[in-house]
């Protein structure tokens, strides 16, 4: 069933109640469809409901309402076949801190035993860039190296879907680039990837589609380039004239610049033409601009 959706979510709701704040809807009616082979990003501020949503899909949390299917199965009703479902899925969770006393090599090789069709552990260690650290104890790894180990353990079972929950928190820029390349490579091999992140550049660089989630609701689902109508939004043109900064918004900025250039007889002082960045659009969506 090649056309089968990897993930289907309809009307998902989850409410927490606490003594301090009473009832709070962490997820307030979410619909999602993720196709096979797609990189799908859930983008939102901290506390928006990203992790709750993902943990419901992963089978870690219960839900109050809604339909959830991951690889055709409801994660809350796996029963006896839960191992077969987990055999096809990889998880990279937030902040784990386990197996401190074992080496990278020992850990990755050990986890490979859990799966019926694992990847080769040594090439996985190589792919996440930990070959040089292979014999080091996990407690000696840096934050970014630990995260790459998490990814290694997430993909060791050769999963059809990979869940990545804020995978690059604490990475330096170089490690992030290398990590993105790895994720793209997995996608090219056919892995479906559901990514949560609060980094805009990460969503823009990786995702085929982005869902922006705010206060437990999805505000928009789109490709990164068209999010919030960014691709068709008016460009902002500014320049300096008589010592005063001038500004216009235009659908045809090239023509405007030509007109300006003709008026100034060549160079326009301090000219700039800007389309809204993903960040502008995003901040507007989450109500922070």
């Amino acid at each position: 069933m090649a056309n089968e959706l990897a993930i289907l979510v309809q009307g998902l709701r989850k409410t927490y109640s606490s003594k301090a704040s009473g009832k709070k809807a962490a997820v307030a009616g979410i619909d999602l469809e993720v196709a096979r082979g797609e990189i799908f990003a859930l983008l939102g501020p901290n506390g928006a409901g990203k992790t709750t949503t993902v943990e419901i899909l992963e089978g870690y949390r219960s839900r109050d309402e809604g339909t959830v299917k991951v690889l055709g199965q409801d994660p809350a009703k796996l029963g006896k076949n839960s191992w077969a479902w987990r055999n096809r899925i990889g998880f990279v969770l937030q902040s784990t801190n386990d197996s401190q006393d074992l080496s990278v090599h020992e850990t990755v090789h050990h986890f490979a035993n859990y799966y019926s069709n694992p990847r080769d552990p040594d090439s996985v260690i190589e792919e996440v860039g930990l070959s040089e650290k292979s014999n080091s104890r996990i407690q000696t790894l840096s934050g970014g190296q630990r995260r790459r180990l998490d990814v290694a353990l997430g993909i060791i079972g050769n999963p059809e879907i990979l869940f990545l929950d804020e995978p690059t928190t604490g990475f330096d820029p170089e490690a992030r680039r290398a990590f993105w390349d790895l994720i793209r490579k997995l996608r090219d091999e056919g892995t479906t990837i559901l990514l949560t992140t609060h980094y805009l550049d990460e969503a823009e660089a990786l995702a085929d589609r982005v869902a922006v989630i705010v206060e437990g609701k999805i505000v928009e689902v789109a490709t990164p380039i068209s999010l919030g109508g960014r691709n068709t939004a008016k460009a902002r043109i500014t320049w300096l004239e008589n010592g005063i900064r001038q500004e216009i918004a235009s659908d045809s900025p090239t023509a405007e610049v030509e007109k300006l250039s003709a008026r100034f007889g060549g160079e326009v002082p301090e000219l700039s033409v800007v389309r809204p960045s993903l960040e502008d659009i995003y901040l507007k969506m989450i109500g922070k601009s």
Binding site: W83, N97, D98, Y115, L153
Partner: peptide, 15 residues
């Protein structure tokens, strides 16, 4: 181990 996430990670595998 529950605090450290050891068990949560295992839960996500077929073990």
């Amino acid at each position: 181990e529950r605090d450290f996430g050891t068990l949560k990670r295992l839960r996500g595998t077929p073990i």
